[in-house]
Design a protein around this nucleic acid. Structure first.
Length: 527
RNA sequence: GGCAGCAUAGCUCAGUUGGUUAGAGCGACGGACUCAUAACCCGUAGGUCGAGGGUUCAAUUCCCCCUGCUGCUACCA
């Protein structure tokens, strides 16, 4: 571990394959990674949030051919779509890593040479039954009678025997098992870890890391007739992304500040590459292993698996255009346990954000500010607990103490990528505040001339709402920013107020309120 | 087939090492309040904790078995 930089945090999404337009399955982990990065920025830790694209391989080449455009042009087009979507979802990434970047090639070459020198890369024959329609090797046992392809039942697979470079994965079996044992939290959630353990326990065999007869990829530096297999190249894209923009593209430069990476957020479908192949590759090259691999769950739509053939894919562009970024971000992080599979249904989406963002949070702020306007002459009231009705004080105290302790608890949830539990804990404070208002009945206190009590109550409510908004800001940055604005405080997304804002006493008594209005309008059920 | 996991109120889920009336949010219904985005607050909802068996003074929580569902079981990414 690079101890000088132990507070540095690098977070990655998968590098998305540019075979098609971004879909909700790419948006989901990106939203989560963005929230996590924003959380670490609140903590004041230097944070590098990496996303990007994986652009090599046969599929890309073929797709480009079908479109009659060069593969690079195809990649460029898709990348624009990704970047556009991230902007609309308010994803504030620091680096966008493209595997077709020339600087990436330099890193891949250097890494390849390093591994090559250890003897972990060797030339051998890739043998097997090959389906020309799928363009892939098939396991003998999955073939139908007479070596017919299971997907293309009218195609007979042919025996292929071609030269490939292999990576000596088998050599790392024991070391990987040691790694999983020494660092039980390396792969999360635990169910995924168990899968990997089971997989590795079966025994690891070497895998090919080059292709022949494929031009869309980096040439193998020691043998340019081969191209580097897309996965070997793609995984290293994370490391390339660590380079500062004006650094020479060398491994040493890439590793100096942000390495090792704090967490790779990935879909469970690409778990093995990250939890098995990648660590082995890094071990071979003598590099440190990332701190954590987190495999999130997959999404369904109305309980049904999404797929192009089913025609039920969620279009993230349409969604964000219709509802805006914050409610979408909120729904996916609040309603779905990160790490488990989850479902999106528009009804549930609407009822969730209405209940939490409009009714609980938004209305709480709005009703509180309304009372400040009516009872406190539009001025944030002073906070002075001396000489106030002990009954009122006894109602306020538990809420205040919960608000003060909330930061620490929510922080633990964020660190565990437990966004759902973070939201729940914050909501509890919001519910308590709404209840506190009803219990303390400030309208009666006001009529009874108990202004000190009204002041203390409203100050405490506003301050609690502020803390809730602050802690929710990684998830709903625009709403939080607006809440801060209505409380006459600044919240800039790129340089947010630091963690001191989880403490009590930030809003300024005596400040005259600006205009205020509901921070989140209820969504109507679409007909 | 093998390995792993899950099955709790209409829905989404909590239920730390077994112990008095099994919880929350949403939805539904009833009530109260009036500061508020018809919001907020209170109350009700009678769920055999998948089926069966076992261990125990006592099991949703441990063991066995059955049923159902899900994931993994290597080179498409």
């Amino acid at each position: 571990m690079n101890s000088e930089n132990s507070d540095h945090v690098a977070i990655t999404t998968p590098l998305y394959y540019v075979n098609g337009l971004p879909h909700i399955g790419s948006a989901y982990p990106t939203i989560a990674a963005d929230a996590l990065a924003r959380f670490y920025r609140l903590r004041g830790q230097p944070t590098l949030f990496i996303t990007g694209t994986d652009e090599h391989g046969q599929k890309i080449q073929r797709t480009a051919e079908e479109l009659h455009i060069p593969p690079q042009e195809h990649c460029d087009r898709i990348v624009t779509e990704f970047q556009d979507l991230w902007q609309q979802l308010n994803i504030k990434y620091d680096r966008f890593s493209r595997t077709t970047d020339l600087r990436h090639q330099a890193i891949v070459n250097e890494f390849f040479q390093l591994v090559f020198k250890t003897g972990d890369i060797y030339l051998s024959q890739q043998q097997g039954w090959y389906c020309v329609a799928c363009e892939e090797f098939k396991e003998e046992r999955e073939l139908l009678a007479d070596h017919h392809c299971p997907t293309h039942t009218n195609v007979t697979c042919e025996w292929r025997d071609e030269a490939n470079y292999f990576f000596r994965l088998s050599k790392y079996q024991a070391k990987l098992e040691q790694l999983y044992r020494d660092r039980p939290k390396f792969i999360q959630p635990e169910s995924r870890r168990n899968e990997v353990l089971g997989f590795v326990a079966q025994g690891l065999t070497d895998f090919s890391i080059s292709r022949i007869n494929l031009s869309w990829g980096f040439p193998v530096p020691t043998d340019p007739q081969h191209t580097i297999y897309v996965w070997f190249d793609a995984l290293l894209g994370y490391i390339t992304a660590l380079l500062n923009p004006d650094d020479e593209p060398t491994l040493a430069n890439a590793l100096k500040t942000w390495y090792p990476i704090k967490v790779h957020i990935i879909g469970k479908d690409i778990l093995r590459f990250h939890a098995v192949y990648f660590p082995a590759m890094l071990m071979s090259a003598g590099l440190e292993i990332p701190e954590r691999i987190f495999g999130h769950g997959l999404l369904t739509k109305d309980g049904v698996k999404m797929g192009k053939t089913l025609g039920n894919v969620i279009d993230p562009y349409a969604l964000v255009k219709k509802y805006g970024a914050d409610p979408i971000r909120y729904y996916f992080l609040r309603e779905i346990e990160f790490g488990k599979d989850g479902d999106f249904s528009e009804d549930r989406f609407i009822s969730s954000v209405n209940a939490d963002l409009a009714n609980s949070l938004g209305n709480l702020l709005n009703r509180s500010l309304g009372m400040v306007a009516k009872y406190c002459d539009r001025t944030i009231p002073p906070s002075d607990s001396a000489n106030i009705d002990p009954h009122i004080l006894s109602l306020i105290e538990p809420v205040k103490s919960k608000a003060i302790n909330l930061g620490d608890r929510v922080s633990e949830s964020y660190k565990d990528l437990a966004f759902r539990s973070a939201c729940e804990q914050i909501l509890e404070l919001i519910w308590d505040c709404n209840k506190l208002i009803d219990d303390a009945t400030p309208w009666k206190l006001f009529k009874a001339g108990k202004t000190a009590e009204v002041n203390q109550l409203l100050y405490s409510i506003l301050e609690s709402v502020r803390i809730a908004a602050y802690l929710l800001s990684p998830i709903i940055p625009q709403i939080s920013q607006e809440i801060y604005r209505q409380l006459c405080l600044d919240f800039t997304e790129l340089e947010p107020p630091l963690w001191e804002h989880t403490k009590w006493g930030i809003i300024k008594s005596g400040t005259i309120l600006a205009d205020f209005k509901p921070v989140f309008q209820r969504l109507e059920i679409a007909s």
